[in-house]
Amino acid sequence: MYSEKVMDHFQNPRNVGEIENASGVGTVGNAKCGDIMRIYLDIDDNGVIQDCKFKTFGCGAAVATSSMATELVKGKTVQEALLVTNKAVMEALDGLPPVKVHCSLLAEEGIHAALWDYAEKNGIVIEGLKKPKNDISEGEEEEEY
């Protein structure tokens, strides 16, 4: 059900781990599916993301999107990192099954949460960054059948 790219990033996840004294740390979860992702960012004085690591408790897609998202933001500026949307992550992974789209949101929100933490710690405002939700499942609705 997963693409080869997803399976590759699941089997050999890039950037697993923690960053001590990270510039920003973000933890997000989806209360409904129960998955949790933590993103660590090391951001230099020019606002460039020097390193990025993650820990994830979640499904295959959650692991793969964490891995891909961390790859995508590395070397980018904070502003550029904001453009790493869940769609971008999914595209980079050659797509996800429909039921797994929400997992990629976890990655996007994880990055945002870490950036938000970084901004708060440094007293700055990142243009276009909204306060991330702790629980990305809010607002989802099941249809009747």
């Binding site: 989806n30 209360a31 409904k32 599916c33 129960g34 998955d35 949790i36 408790f57 979640g58 499904c59 295959g60 897609a61 959650a62 039921v99 929400h102 997992c103 499942s137 989802e140 099941e142």
Partner: peptide, 21 residues
Amino acid sequence: ACTSGSLDPSHVLLAIGLPHE
């Protein structure tokens, strides 16, 4: 949850008192 069509983890495991995670 991730393996079921829905997002909820097994209702059986919740019913025997296991926490979500």
